[in-house]
Design a binder for these strands. Structure first.
Length: 285
DNA sequence: TTAAATGTTTAAAT
DNA sequence: CATTTAAACATTTA
């Protein structure tokens, strides 16, 4: 599920709960989901929680950092000291943790727990040594493009980054994590609608005026995503087990044959770069 | 029954 | 060699 807004939603949730807690126990139900020796984290204290691109990073004392990628169906759910989890139970949770897609369970010093669920098992958690320059300098982040919500990310940066993908369809190009980090299928579709660009347009055919519009569209869609707590298609829920509401506000994603919110033309679905791509054929001509 | 699903990597084809 | 497409990962749901 996770694109930048979903991972950011989790980051905001976890940073209110984890810092200061110590790991008491880690139960690995699916070894592929946890690629490290759980014992290394025994009794270590959580310092802080960061996000880079779609990767979540929990920093511990003693130069240890836990990196988490949720891929398509990962969930992180926090269960406080109280017995029940806050928020609405979803089909997945059935109000009970763990469930059949629970892959890893973290238990903390105050008896609270963090569940890592991942139906499709694409997601991973790995433990790395915090780089002396800070975890964000780690190799894993080396090839990632700039963070689109940082001030440094101007429309000129966007244009420059896209220069090596001139022949690629713009929608495929902005989903390339080496061009910009954090934009996935949902927000790519939404950003292109906001900037009124046909997703099939080749990068080389985009004018400066359109680069500015696109730059604005990417930022707006991501910020709206965070504002509404992310997108829930089927799996995403926040640390409290609640769904994200962004898709209720989406313009085109998953709106095939529904009228465009701007011009009433039916939204079309095509395939680009192997992914479902939604757009308004009139507004994005 | 078949297709598609929020992501990324690798192989194969063009 | 560059670019594009497909497959793989694993599971569920429409």
């Amino acid at each position: 599920m996770p694109e930048l807004p979903e991972v950011e939603t989790l980051k905001l949730g976890l940073e209110k709960k984890l810092p200061g807690l110590r790991i008491k126990k880690i139960e690995v139900l699916n070894p592929k989901s946890f690629q490290a020796n759980p014992k290394l984290l025994g009794n270590k204290k959580v310092l802080n929680v960061l996000r880079r691109a779609k990767i979540l990073c929990i920093n511990y004392e003693r130069d240890l950092s836990l990196l988490i990628h949720l891929k398509m169906s990962g969930q992180l759910i926090y269960q406080g000291k109280e017995k029940l989890i806050g928020g609405h139970p979803t089909k997945d949770m059935k109000g009970q943790m763990p469930n059949k897609s629970t892959r890893v369970i973290f238990e903390f010093s105050d008896n609270s727990k963090l569940f890592f669920n991942d139906q499709r098992k694409f997601g991973w958690i790995k433990l790395v040594k915090t780089n002396e320059l800070g975890i964000l300098s780690h190799l894993i982040f080396k090839n990632l493009g700039p963070e689109p919500l940082e001030k440094k990310f101007t429309w000129e940066v966007l244009k420059e980054r896209l220069r090596k993908r001139l022949g690629t369809a713009i929608k495929v190009a902005i989903m390339d994590q080496q061009v910009i980090s954090g934009v996935g299928n949902i927000y790519a579709c939404e950003a292109l609608f906001i900037s009124k660009i046909d997703p099939r347009t080749k990068v080389k055919d985009i004018s400066n005026k359109r680069f500015k519009l696109l730059h604005n569209g990417i930022i707006k869609s991501l910020k709206d995503g965070i504002k509404y707590g992310g997108s829930t298609r089927t799996h995403f829920i926040n640390t409290d087990g609640e769904k994200g509401l962004f898709l209720d506000h989406a313009f085109v994603y998953n709106k095939t044959k529904k009228p465009c919110k701007s011009c009433k033309t039916y939204i079309q679905k095509i395939t680009l770069g192997g992914r479902g791509t939604y757009f308004c054929p009139k507004c994005q001509a």
